[in-house]
Design a protein around this nucleic acid. Structure first.
Lengths: 217, 217
DNA sequence: CTTATAATTTAGACAAAACTAAAAATATGT
DNA sequence: ACATATTTTTAGTTTTGTCTAAATTATAAG
């Protein structure tokens, strides 16, 4: 698998969550920030390598091999993110770009030893699960802040939007993975939510509330 | 700088030690395990980018910029080697291949933080000096075992040949960086040398003696 | 059911980095 | 000095992954 092939597999894997019936050429091209014709070419190549099945004008679906490979790349990516944040003082909005490169280094020993060195982490710095060596994810049942119930207390376990802007907003408001919060009030007018943190209270907008994952504690 | 360009710069940098007047196309092609015509093409490209000066049929010499870039790549390579050996339990014959990939990830923050995490190492696992952020090497005065004097005691500080075969030979004889040895006898017949380690004595051949660097203690 | 529009694929080109084969320049031996 | 051998360069292809423009297929609206 070349670098480009790995990136396409990863993109298709992510898009499959959203489009389980098959990933369209356009969606893939948009995700990869390229043109539809390029996506077509690569899909054809990956189909020849039995990484996916492709019905022209319909969409692409990963094969077992393709999905396995994508998960492997995701495992590498997320382990490196943990390393960058825990050992090299990266903040959660800085890790992505570097991890995009590190994830393509293909050495089983490297990744297995890194995994052990980090003491087999189960979640990455954004709260996303890290698949184990066999490709199995530890599932976490999480809800979105927008659907949390008033009066209950939750722990922050992840984010949906991983843009630098959003992560910096959370940082500046002392919200991170593991932060404990209680839902004080939901404002029906604009769907904003008032939450209580350890030492402060704040109101978050609906767009924030839709991108923060919580787990009841 | 692309991956291929970085590898060529590094190769030219190494060859310049051996051929200070200019690196020939053939030598470069051999080092890169490619053909002379490919070397010519790349040298032309690097000359256009002002990474080196090239006089056709004469040879190539790195510019300041080119040498600086090569040193940067070497710094990255050697820091990653330290990381792999010290943190991920790689042995010194396993590190090279993976470090060849890691060295091309271009992030100043990544390398500076890695440097700090490793506590600013000055030598890599093979005893080669690691340039600092400014590209300066800490020079070590070392001699080759073949020229050590009978009766003196030395510390092993590096190797010349970094082939897996040689490193495994050293490993299996309990010789590593930092190993203390005393020269017992030099055999004029075949230039073999008898040395005393902490708990044993052994005889090494001339070809081994020419590839082990020592420092008087 | 036909037509307009949107999505997808094909065809043809390009740049990077490699190759082969051949030409040109330099070096060497007598 | 001259013929030969070696080194280096040039010319023309190949592969990977991209692009634009054009053609094809699917979808939706009337």
């Amino acid at each position: 698998m070349t670098l480009a092939e790995e990136n396409y597999l990863k993109a298709i894997y992510h898009l499959e969550q959203q489009f389980p019936k098959g990933v369209s050429t356009n969606a893939l091209a948009e995700e990869m920030k390229t043109k539809a014709s390029s996506a077509t070419d690569m899909v054809k190549k990956l189909a020849e390598k039995d990484m996916l099945t492709h019905i022209p004008y319909q969409g692409a679906t990963l094969s077992e091999a393709g999905r396995g490979y994508a998960v492997k790349v995701i495992r590498r990516h997320r382990l490196w993110e943990v390393f960058l944040v825990e050992k090299l003082n990266f903040s959660w909005d800085e890790v992505h770009e570097v991890a995009e490169h590190l994830e393509h280094i293909n050495s089983d020993k490297l990744i297995d030893e890194l995994d052990a060195f980090l003491e087999f982490p189960i979640y990455d710095p954004h709260g996303d699960p890290i698949p184990d060596k066999q490709g199995h994810f530890k599932h976490i049942e999480k809800i979105v802040l927008a659907k949390a119930e008033v009066g209950s207390t939750y722990k922050c376990v992840g984010v949906d939007d991983t843009s630098s802007k959003f992560l910096k907003y959370l940082d500046s408001n002392a919200i991170g993975l593991g932060t404990i919060m209680t839902i004080k009030h939901k404002e029906p007018f604009d769907n904003s939510i008032k939450i209580a943190l350890e030492h402060s209270e704040m109101v978050v907008s609906q767009s924030v509330a839709k991108n923060l994952y919580l787990k009841k504690v």
